[in-house]
Amino acid sequence: MKHYEVEILDAKTREKLCFLDKVEPHATIAEIKNLFTKTHPQWYPARQSLRLDPKGKSLKDEDVLQKLPVGTTATLYFRDLGAQISWVTVFLTEYAGPLFIYLLFYFRVPFIYGHKYDFTSSRHTVVHLACICHSFHYIKRLLETLFVHRFSHGTMPLRNIFKNCTYYWGFAAWMAYYINHPLYTPPTYGAQQVKLALAIFVICQLGNFSIHMALRDLRPAGSKTRKIPYPTKNPFTWLFLLVSCPNYTYEVGSWIGFAIMTQCLPVALFSLVGFTQMTIWAKGKHRSYLKEFRDYPPLRMPIIPFLL
């Protein structure tokens, strides 16, 4: 059985960083990364991007050496992705923050609204209902991160945790300040508006959870398998008939419901920014589905049925 020789060059300087002799033909890129780490321990596998061309796409960890368009002496180019952190850690951090930050404003801890309001309670029912909904949303997200989601990528750049936390924590503080303010004004149409908004919120939260469970069942634990998601017997998953990412559709719907319930401008802005970002993600995933699966359902749109 022939063996391969693998040289790894710096993608920027073309400097030879490592030479691997007698590499098995069936070795994966993940195994080559581990061998590279032995000579350069500062670059652990998650930091490494190996590619066939200095400006090309990163090879997948599961790619097999003998199936790549290389000879028995293969040249790979290395790029440092920077310090990495696990997706689970990032999600837990960015979701735990809003949960606790919101509660600080809800309980009106000292130095927020003035001494005479310390630890007082709002007289408006919608304020307490909003706290329950907000807390439920982020507790749900935390539990899904721990027990439901299966991540195709193990890590992301460390800098992302600061960007994500600034976004989630900042908006949580902004909306919580106004919703729990002693001078907060309840919704214009009173109980009817709150009940309608609560119904929207609850339905969308159930829908979002149902989609996450359906997506989880598509991917076996520990794998990166991708399949076309289809509706199940659960009615909340029937939205798969019309959109590629109904989890985002339901998520946006939840925040629209919360915005109607609280009639709070920061919540509306958070919903708008979230919708914009999720639309970008949904379009990317939709394109990926179309590219990977020739039999992908043609009627589906990325996030909004028939429109977007």
Rank of each mutant, 00 (worst) to 15 (best):
H153Y: 11
Y184R: 15
P98Y: 00
E7Y: 14
P246R: 08
I139L: 01
T155N: 03
H128N: 03
Q193M: 01
L239Y: 10
C245F: 03
Y44H: 09
L308R: 12
A191Q: 03
Q205R: 02
Y113E: 00
M301Q: 03
F258L: 12
Y44I: 01
S49F: 06
L206R: 04
Y95K: 15
A74P: 00
A172D: 09
Y4L: 07
P302H: 06
P45C: 00
A199I: 14
H212Q: 04
F270T: 05
N234D: 09
F171P: 00
L68G: 02
S288Y: 14
Y296L: 03
T232M: 15
P187N: 05
C165P: 05
Q277E: 13
Y250I: 15
S210I: 15
D295L: 13
W238F: 01
F111R: 03
V194M: 08
S288R: 09
G114L: 15
N234K: 08
R14V: 06
S271E: 03
I139T: 09
P305R: 06
P54I: 01
F275W: 06
W43M: 02
I280M: 13
Y4G: 05
T120F: 03
H134S: 03
H181Q: 02
F111E: 06
T237E: 13
L68I: 07
P69F: 14
T249D: 14
M278V: 12
A173W: 07
L50I: 03
Y44C: 10
G190S: 12
T232N: 08
F258N: 14
M213P: 15
I228N: 12
Q277R: 06
N247G: 15
E94M: 08
F151H: 07
F119R: 05
D118L: 00
T75E: 14
A30K: 14
Y95R: 03
R216H: 13
A46H: 00
P235V: 00
N208Y: 04
F107Y: 00
Y138W: 10
L241Q: 11
L20N: 05
K12C: 06
T145L: 10
A11K: 12
Q193H: 12
Y102Q: 06
H115K: 00
A191T: 09
Q193D: 12
F107M: 04
T155S: 12
C18T: 14
H153W: 02
L272K: 02
H128G: 08
S135A: 12
Y95Q: 11
K140V: 14
H115D: 03
A27L: 02
M261A: 01
Y95H: 03
S254L: 04
R123E: 14
D118P: 04
N160D: 09
T225D: 00
N34H: 07
L290W: 12
R47Y: 04
H149Q: 04
Y250D: 13
S121F: 12
T155I: 10
Q205A: 15
E292H: 12
V194I: 15
N34T: 00
L9R: 06
L81Q: 13
W281C: 04
V243P: 05
A11F: 09
L129F: 11
V23E: 07
F19R: 12
I132P: 13
L35E: 06
T232L: 15
P45R: 08
G190R: 08
I260A: 06
Y177P: 01
R159L: 10
I29M: 05
S254E: 08
I304F: 10
H137N: 13
R219Q: 07
I304Q: 05
S86G: 09
T145K: 06
L158Y: 14
R14M: 08
C18R: 10
S49I: 01
Y230D: 08
Y177E: 03
L272H: 12
H128S: 13
F270C: 08
K16R: 11
H115V: 02
T120N: 05
D63H: 12
I101P: 04
F236Y: 09
L265P: 11
G170L: 00
Y296Q: 00
F19K: 12
T188A: 10
Y113N: 09
G207R: 02
S58L: 05
Q193V: 14
S135W: 03
P45N: 15
K195D: 01
R300Q: 02
K22R: 10
D80H: 05
P187K: 09
L20Y: 14
I179S: 09
R216M: 10
Q277H: 05
V23F: 10
T262F: 14
K2S: 08
F105H: 15
L269R: 04
L103K: 03
Q48F: 03
Y4S: 04
I29E: 05
V70F: 04
L52M: 09
P266R: 09
F240I: 11
F151P: 11
A176K: 00
S135E: 04
A172I: 14
N208T: 12
L59Q: 05
S135V: 02
L239M: 00
A191W: 00
A221T: 10
N247D: 05
T279A: 11
Q193W: 00
C131E: 00
K224Y: 14
I203M: 08
P157N: 12
R51K: 00
G154Y: 12
F107N: 15
G71L: 10
